[in-house]
């Protein structure tokens, strides 16, 4: 899988740029994909916003503008605590995933020059294969009657019926599973930034008397930071809203913000409150994206 990081060059700066065409061709080509996103992504976001201030409501006749749900939520509600707990867990997951993946990406990009695409494919394949089935695997492995605990009973390390209780239905289980799910994905953007590194810079650093460690700290690491930040964002943002991982292996302790949202729309049937939570999450995501946009929009991580 060839992977590269270049800026998506603006057509006028490219050598073989096509002449500018009448605007209606561009518009015509662009309209279907953009409209699709507008109808099935942006319009729903606006609807969520309207539900969150009760301008829209599940209950006919009950619509009127109010910020009460927002006030309740922001005024120290348990949901807000849950949000911060999710942020903490996502931070741990993203940092752990980046730390685990960096040496892998470094090894593939800068050391294993011969078989690099094979090695990259080896790391990426689990990610491409399945999210849900890998979740299931961990539920089977970590359970009280799961692979690890029954192995411990069988070998006599633990007494039968005395499972290692924190293995499942804990924050640990959620964090471990999420790191497992995201490590391959994280390795990709880091690999891309390291692979596009100009090796001559390292040679120059060596010629100028830099040690390996100095060359890494002053050349390689700074130049790979955009990839590291992109990788971090690619894990951090989606995991704040994780739903199925906490549901399957999290139990009560491992619940995350996404579970609260699902619960409001599901069992509680409180779309007003659920919309407040959803729109809050979307706002946080939008803010994070705005802050980190330059690491995401100019770089592309692509299979080529």
């Amino acid at each position: 899988m060839a992977v590269e990081a270049q800026e998506i060059a603006r057509p006028e700066t490219r050598r073989r740029a096509r002449r500018a065409r009448p605007g209606f061709v561009t518009t015509g080509l662009l309209a279907p994909p953009v409209l699709w996103l507008v109808i099935f992504f942006l319009v729903p976001v606006v609807l969520i916003a309207l539900y969150s201030v009760n301008v829209f409501s599940l209950y006919p006749g009950g619509q009127y503008f109010t910020l009460d749900s927002w006030k309740n939520f922001l005024d120290g509600s348990p949901f807000l605590d849950l949000f911060w707990k999710s942020v903490r867990m996502s931070l741990i997951v993203s940092v752990a995933a980046v730390l685990a993946a960096y040496p892998i990406a470094y090894f593939i990009a800068l050391v294993a020059s011969r078989r690099k695409y094979v090695l990259l494919l080896l790391i990426l394949t689990p990610f491409l294969v399945s999210y849900f089935l890998r979740l299931l695997a961990w539920k089977v492995i970590l359970g009280d009657q799961g692979v690890i605990n029954t192995f411990l009973y069988w070998t006599g390390i633990r007494a039968e019926g005395d499972p290692v209780s924190w293995l499942i239905y804990s924050q640990f289980a959620v964090i471990l599973t999420l790191v497992y799910v995201y490590v391959p994905f994280v390795a990709l953007p880091i690999f891309v930034s390291l692979d596009s590194l100009d090796r001559r810079l390292l040679e120059a650093a060596a010629d100028l008397g830099a040690s390996r460690w100095q060359a890494f700290r002053k050349v390689t690491l700074p130049l790979s930071l955009p990839g590291v930040i992109a990788a971090f964002i690619f894990v951090f943002i989606p995991t704040i809203g994780e739903y199925f991982t906490p549901l399957l292996v999290g139990g009560v302790n491992g619940t995350m913000f996404g579970n609260a949202i699902a619960d409001q729309f599901g069992q509680s049937l409180n779309w007003l409150n659920g919309s407040v939570l959803s729109f809050f999450l979307l706002t946080v995501v939008a803010l994070l994206l705005a802050v980190f946009a330059r690491f995401l929009t100019v770089r592309r991580v692509a299979t080529g």
Binding site: L37, F41, P44, V45, I233, P238, T239, V285, L289, L296
Partner: peptide
């Protein structure tokens, strides 16, 4: 806009579609 679904939590997309 076109690339944003890569990072937006799926739960937010899913809830949005449900409401829509």
């Amino acid at each position: 806009l076109l690339l944003s679904p890569l990072v937006v939590p799926y739960i937010a997309l899913a809830i949005g579609l449900l409401v829509f």
